[in-house]
Write a protein that binds this DNA or RNA. Sequence first.
RNA 1: GCGCGCAUAGCUCAGUGGUAGAGCGUUUCGUUGACAUCGAAAAGGUCUAUGGUUCAAAUCCAUAUGCGCGCACCA
Length: 734
Amino acid sequence: MDKVYQHKSVEEKWYKIWEEKGYFTPKIDKSKKPYTVLLPLPNANDPMHMGHALFTVEDILVRFHRMLGEPTLWLPGGDHAGIETQFVFEKKLAREGKSRFDFDRDTLYRMISDFVDQNKNINRDQMKRLGFSLDWTRYHFSLEPKIVEKVLATFQKLHHDNLIYRAERLVNFCPRCGTAFSDLEVNHEERSDLLYFIDYGSIQIATARPETIFADVAVAVNPKDKRFKKAVGKTAIIPLINKEIPIISDDAIQIDFGTGALKVTPAHDQVDYEIGLRHKLPVISTIDRFGRFIQVPQQYKGLKIAAARKMIADDLEKAGKLVKTEPLIHTVSICYRCKGTIEPMLMPQWFVKTKPLAEPAIQAVKKGRTKIVPAKRFEKLYFDWLENIHDWNISRQIVWGPRLPIWYCLDCNLELEISFIDSKGQKVSGTYKNLSDKYAFEEIEKGLQSIIAPLDATYSLTSGPCKTCGGNHILQETDTFDTWFLSGQWPLTTLDFPDGADFKYFYPTSVLDTLWDILFFWVARMMMFGLYLANDVPFRVIHLHSRVVDNHGQKMSKSKGNVVNPIEMVDKYGADALRFALVFGAAPGSDISLSEDKIRGMRNFSNKLWNIGRFLKMSSSSLSPQSSLSSSSSDKIMLSEFKKVHKKATSLIEKYQFGQAGEIIYEFIWHAFADNYIEESKDLLKENNTARLNTLLTIYQGSLKLLHPFMPFITEEINHSLFPNSDPLIISTW
RNA sequence: GCGCGCAUAGCUCAGUGGUAGAGCGUUUCGUUGACAUCGAAAAGGUCUAUGGUUCAAAUCCAUAUGCGCGCACCA
């Protein structure tokens, strides 16, 4: 054995052996209860970050249960990650001076697909570097035909059960990403803006968005506000266009904000939209899907929002209608992806009715069919969200994802709006009624970018000729599914629901371990889909771990420059050192701070472990083997100490207290075993006390097993070197 | 605004109703049958503050302060 542990060759060698021998692939044995974990599917083309490395927690669980003799499945996968991937790809296009609007959707889709394929295996190979004992024979990608087929079937079932509907709602639209989002994908940010006080003739209003005045349909005041008692029922005048609008009263208005009078703009604000519904007000949109001004006086047409705000504010001032401005600190909605401002926009979208799905998901946790760990912190969050859930907007106006299985007959829906690239490469858009004389259907279909069907459009859930008119001019909906609609069904689709052998054996899975930030996005949705489709929870336990932060408690991010690259650390200190550093001394549910110093410390531990092995190996080569154990009082103390550690570590792992389990094993090996027991043994070994050597070896091998789930490579290598006739640790008995 | 979490050694963090712990750092000593990626030892904390419960609180409760986070339609 080398004087210093050389991780590199050892890690490569053992991963290959484990994988080739099929140790990661469980045998279905109906007499035994399986242990199943699904890997939270990483974005297939994302390089690994520390968040992925934290899946070490899952490898510990999986290796532990495998050693307990349970048929153990840890199932890997890759996510197409709809908007995430398209966003990255569009940035690449932008660097080349192009945009997605330069391509028809089939071409764009193919380009993204190629881009993903080029990078698809990066993450997979990096998982292997960390020693993750994933069953690669069961790897799935979220856009595999078999997976998509099942997802579409779910949509059809939901539709059949009346849980899908299409509606025009004020949705969260990001003009930069060009798509609507669900409520979950919207973040909030505090901003410093101006509050504009504007003269509306008989009344003065205050607004942060003067550019939307042309979309105003009323001015609202609080019914309890004595100042405006007489104004209600009269009219106000929108400046610059001198349009008369009614003054109404509504409880939503805060008396002490601004002037106490709110301009009501239903098309561009959520609160105003609801006021509009209550008072049956019209809706006027003045901003389109690209964030440009429409239906406004000529000089403002086509302007972007920021430019329009400045110009309109200037014009108001010139007209003497801008009374004053005040600084305003308020929160605005921003896109979680590109950080741009979200524009509430009136658009037809596809929704899932979530209340009927949420109720069983709430009950399942209340009744303990699924346990959340740590419960104290996250159960309440889970219930709060599911109890207040809104319907789920599942349609995205991007190409990277499966299109909704909805087909429109153009001849039956002449008002359907189409955008496409014609045979000369020109962008064309308009209603089918206007386009059908000039363009052949085939040309439209070939260059198709997107369609927007009128709200009352008729549609079919299957492709093929129109069932009403028999026509063949059929286009499939261009909206694609929210990524989470696919990943929400991951336990079902990957295990081959409803009839697959894997599904019947491995479902429900044992533990779902993930970072808490996708509790709603992903975990709650899997609960809903699992119960809805399979009538059983997708997992018995939800284990939530926290994020990895730097050694100042700061979140790791590229812009802060504090990112620790896991693969770099593996190269430098070994996968085992990184793995142990990630779990050592970490409490469930709290942030895990990681520094290179800590990883180095754990590398030192692995070297210590190595040298214990080296010492024992040297000792055994000079002594003849003997089967009996020594039995002095210090031996007895040591053996019973080991048993205690074994028992304690077992129960800590069962309670998901990996940090503490790691600590007591570390403490035992380094201090109790090496510093005390080995030192004390040196004289005895000089006197050829083989019984003592046997005791040393027995306890050492036991310790290697305890440590194996945490540090799989080095323990396997030492075990093989010292005990060449015993089983590999990965399949040894705990 | 509502809700949640955290405040323990120089730094990063574990921990428990009953003489304060780890990793890293610091100081001193050490070439002992493996390991200097080591060993022996040491320094360093009124466990945020105040009040309460208790024989006993850093640990439970209340309030305050500071920091972090989640949710929310403040124009």
